[in-house]
Amino acid sequence: MTWSEMALVALGMLAVGLVLAWRGASRLDRLHRKVAASRIALDAQLVRRASTAVELAASGALDPASAVLVADAAYTASDVGPVTSPAAALQMDGLGPDRERAESGLTATLREAMGAPEAIRTLLAGPSGDVVAGLAAAWYRATLARRFHNEAVAQARRVRRLWYVRLFRLAGHAPMPRTVELDDALPHALELGGG
């Protein structure tokens, strides 16, 4: 094999390597954008859940002490730091431990304030049933949004662990995406078909 033939083979291998690296980097970039978009969607659903919880507290369906606790937990979850800019979403750092604790606190407060399944069914049948049904829907959408976000993060992490992604540093300086871990389990009586 002559030098020119070896140079041609090396150039061909380099071209194939560059194409594969470009495709891998493009895929990783799409996954990072998917993580950012799912984080923004999750934040919007959590804000909607908190505002619906405030509506429930103001509706008169709960006893006064529970209403105050629910409103306080909802305002705390809202004040801790919703994503307000696309730059904040691109950090891919989840929601942060303070926000996750506040959202978990809202979940626990809502479950405690709403009580047993019989009490939830009474709330749904009462004059504030629409507010309770709206809370159940917002809560369910927030749960789904968190699952979608965590799946997007898992996909991005799987791709970032591939040997060629690490070898050629295809992720660049993008931080490793983090999942959102919080307690968002609905009471059984509010689940679709669970009441």
Rank of each mutant, 00 (worst) to 15 (best):
A71H: 11
D63S: 07
T122E: 14
A65F: 11
A44V: 11
L62I: 04
E151D: 14
A71L: 10
L135P: 08
L123N: 05
G81Q: 08
V83D: 00
V68H: 11
L123D: 01
E118S: 15
V132K: 00
L90H: 08
A133H: 01
A53C: 03
T84H: 04
N150D: 14
L144T: 14
F148D: 12
P86S: 01
L135H: 06
A133L: 07
A108Y: 04
L135N: 00
R111I: 09
T76L: 09
I120K: 10
E103G: 02
R49G: 03
P117T: 10
Y75W: 12
A73S: 13
E100M: 01
T143Q: 12
G129V: 04
L124P: 06
T107C: 13
E103I: 02
V68F: 02
I40W: 07
L110D: 00
A154H: 00
A58C: 10
L69H: 11
A125L: 05
D98M: 09
A142D: 02
L123Y: 09
L42F: 06
A71E: 15
V132S: 01
S66D: 15
L56C: 08
V132N: 00
A61Q: 06
A71K: 15
R33N: 09
A89M: 01
A65G: 06
T84L: 14
R99K: 10
A119W: 00
P127Q: 04
A125C: 08
L106M: 11
A53D: 03
R141Q: 12
L110E: 05
A102M: 08
L69V: 03
G105M: 00
L62C: 11
L46G: 10
A116G: 02
R141N: 09
A44S: 13
A65H: 10
T143N: 05
A145Q: 09
A88N: 00
V47N: 02
S66Y: 02
A53M: 06
R49I: 02
A87R: 13
D98I: 04
E151Y: 07
L31F: 00
L69W: 07
A73E: 06
A71D: 15
E151I: 11
R33S: 12
K34M: 05
V132M: 05
V153L: 09
S38K: 12
I40F: 08
L95A: 04
S85I: 01
L46N: 00
L144Q: 14
D63E: 15
A142I: 06
T122C: 01
R141K: 12
Q45G: 08
S78K: 13
T76F: 05
V54C: 10
L106V: 03
R49F: 02
L135K: 02
L124K: 15
E112G: 13
M92Y: 07
Y75M: 14
V54G: 07
W139P: 07
V153K: 06
A50Y: 01
V80E: 13
S38H: 10
I40G: 02
D98E: 14
S78D: 08
A88S: 10
R147G: 10
Q155D: 14
P86G: 02
A113Q: 11
L135V: 05
L31V: 01
S66F: 02
H149R: 06
E103P: 03
A73G: 05
